[in-house]
Each structure stands twice: as C-alpha cells, then as structure tokens.
Simulated scan of single mutants.
Amino acid sequence: MSDRVRKRIIFYGNVQGVGFRYRALHAANSLGITGWVRNEWDGSVSMEVQGTEADIDQMILMIQRGTYVMIRDMKVKSLPLEKEGIFRIR
C-alpha cells in the first residue's frame, strides 16, 4: 500500500453533461482505483481518488478520451489515505 496516494482533483472545462462521471466510474473500476466523483454547482467536477500515481494518471487520460469531454484545467491536492473499497458517483 505504500505506493498508493490519495488526491482531490477539481476539473474545469466542458466536464458536466458529457458523461464525465460515468467515464470516471468505468476507468476507476478497470484500474482498481477507489474514491468518488461529483458535479459541483459552479460547473466543475470534484473527485477524490486513491491508487498509484500511474493509475490515477491513466484514469485521467481515459476520461479525456471521451467524446465531448474537454478538461481545460485541474486543481490537485494530496490527501491522507482512507479506508474504502469502491469508487462511486455522489
């Protein structure tokens, strides 16, 4: 578990109403990433993810490949690890 990290990422751009959260769920499940994703009132999408750096980077690439998804900016913050077993949409 020592190579696992937890990050809070806020995505800006064309990220709501384009299947972003469902792509995130699918990517997380395929990579073994835990955490959550939700839409925010300001049009951004917040996500907390826990996995390896490489898997988190791969997850973001998988989301970006989605039709209509356009990530223009991301704010990333490191967090302490949590005990959880799934990735969910909030």
Score class of each variant (00 low, 15 high):
46 S>I: 10
19 G>D: 03
73 D>F: 05
62 M>V: 01
28 A>H: 00
47 M>D: 02
42 D>K: 04
83 K>F: 14
59 M>I: 08
13 G>N: 12
80 P>A: 11
30 S>Q: 04
37 V>D: 02
30 S>F: 00
76 V>A: 10
66 G>K: 07
36 W>S: 04
15 V>D: 05
12 Y>D: 14
67 T>L: 15
52 T>S: 09
2 S>M: 10
28 A>M: 00
10 I>C: 07
65 R>Y: 11
43 G>L: 03
37 V>L: 00
20 F>G: 05
84 E>D: 11
5 V>E: 13
59 M>W: 00
24 A>E: 08
64 Q>C: 11
60 I>T: 03
90 R>V: 15
56 I>E: 01
15 V>N: 08
46 S>L: 14
67 T>S: 15
9 I>V: 08
15 V>I: 09
75 K>D: 15
14 N>R: 15
64 Q>H: 05
73 D>H: 11
75 K>T: 15
1 M>V: 08
74 M>Q: 14
21 R>I: 06
11 F>W: 03
26 H>K: 08
39 N>C: 04
14 N>V: 10
85 G>T: 12
68 Y>M: 13
14 N>F: 12
61 L>F: 07
16 Q>G: 01
33 I>V: 06
67 T>I: 13
80 P>T: 04
54 A>F: 06
44 S>W: 07
6 R>I: 05
64 Q>E: 15
38 R>G: 03
34 T>F: 00
8 R>W: 12
51 G>N: 02
60 I>Q: 02
77 K>F: 09
79 L>H: 06
87 F>N: 03
7 K>D: 09
71 I>D: 07
53 E>P: 06
37 V>I: 11
18 V>N: 10
88 R>W: 12
62 M>E: 07
15 V>Y: 05
76 V>F: 05
32 G>P: 02
9 I>L: 09
79 L>D: 10
43 G>W: 00
35 G>H: 04
80 P>V: 05
35 G>W: 02
75 K>R: 15
85 G>W: 11
26 H>E: 10
71 I>K: 04
77 K>G: 07
13 G>S: 15
17 G>W: 06
67 T>R: 15
88 R>P: 07
33 I>K: 02
71 I>F: 09
20 F>C: 14
21 R>D: 05
88 R>L: 15
50 Q>I: 02
60 I>M: 02
36 W>G: 05
32 G>L: 08
33 I>L: 07
58 Q>S: 14
62 M>T: 04
78 S>C: 09
19 G>A: 01
87 F>K: 08
82 E>A: 14
37 V>N: 01
13 G>L: 10
66 G>T: 06
20 F>K: 02
39 N>F: 00
25 L>Y: 10
22 Y>V: 09
67 T>N: 13
72 R>L: 11
89 I>Q: 01
63 I>Q: 00
39 N>G: 01
31 L>V: 00
3 D>A: 14
41 W>V: 14
33 I>Y: 01
55 D>M: 11
13 G>K: 05
60 I>W: 01
62 M>R: 12
48 E>I: 10
35 G>A: 07
10 I>V: 13
18 V>L: 10
82 E>M: 12
27 A>R: 03
14 N>H: 13
52 T>R: 09
77 K>I: 04
69 V>R: 04
33 I>S: 09
72 R>K: 13
80 P>G: 10
73 D>E: 13
33 I>H: 06
30 S>L: 03
50 Q>N: 04
25 L>M: 11
48 E>Q: 14
9 I>K: 04
59 M>R: 06
62 M>S: 01
72 R>W: 00
67 T>F: 15
45 V>C: 07
